[in-house]
Computed example of a mutant assay.
Amino acid sequence: MAAETQCVVAGGGPAGIVLGLLLARAGVKVTVLEKHADFLREFQGRYCARLDDPALGRAGAR
């Protein structure tokens, strides 16, 4: 992890990636950590998030 990281996000699922993206766009030096080498599995956040969530719109996911 780089010494200049200001924020570490644990988990590269849907919520972690969107959080990392929004923080980076706001100028925060962020590192997203993910323990799995691939994304060939189901994510818990995939079932919890609403498709019309305003955060997804702000992230450009619509």
Rank of each mutant, 00 (worst) to 15 (best):
R62V: 12
L51S: 15
P54I: 01
L19Q: 08
L56R: 09
L40A: 13
Q6G: 03
L56W: 07
A49D: 06
A10G: 11
G60R: 06
V30I: 05
G13M: 02
V18A: 00
A24Q: 03
L23V: 01
E4Q: 13
G13Q: 02
E34M: 05
A59L: 06
A24G: 04
G11Q: 07
A10N: 09
G11Y: 11
I17R: 12
M1I: 08
G27N: 08
R25C: 03
A3T: 05
A24S: 09
G13A: 05
K29Y: 08
Q6V: 03
L56H: 08
L21T: 09
P14E: 02
V28P: 02
F43Y: 13
G12Y: 06
A26T: 06
R41C: 04
R50Q: 15
Y47C: 04
G27V: 06
E42N: 13
G27E: 00
G60L: 03
A26Q: 07
V18S: 01
R58G: 04
V18R: 00
L51Q: 15
A61R: 11
C48M: 15
E34S: 05
L23K: 06
G16C: 04
A61D: 04
L40G: 10
C48H: 14
A10S: 11
D53P: 00
T31C: 09
D53Y: 15
A3Y: 10
A15R: 11
R62P: 14
G57A: 13
L51T: 14
G45V: 07
R58I: 01
T31I: 03
E4V: 07
Q6I: 00
A49T: 14
C7L: 12
L23A: 02
L21F: 09
D53N: 13
D38W: 14
L23G: 00
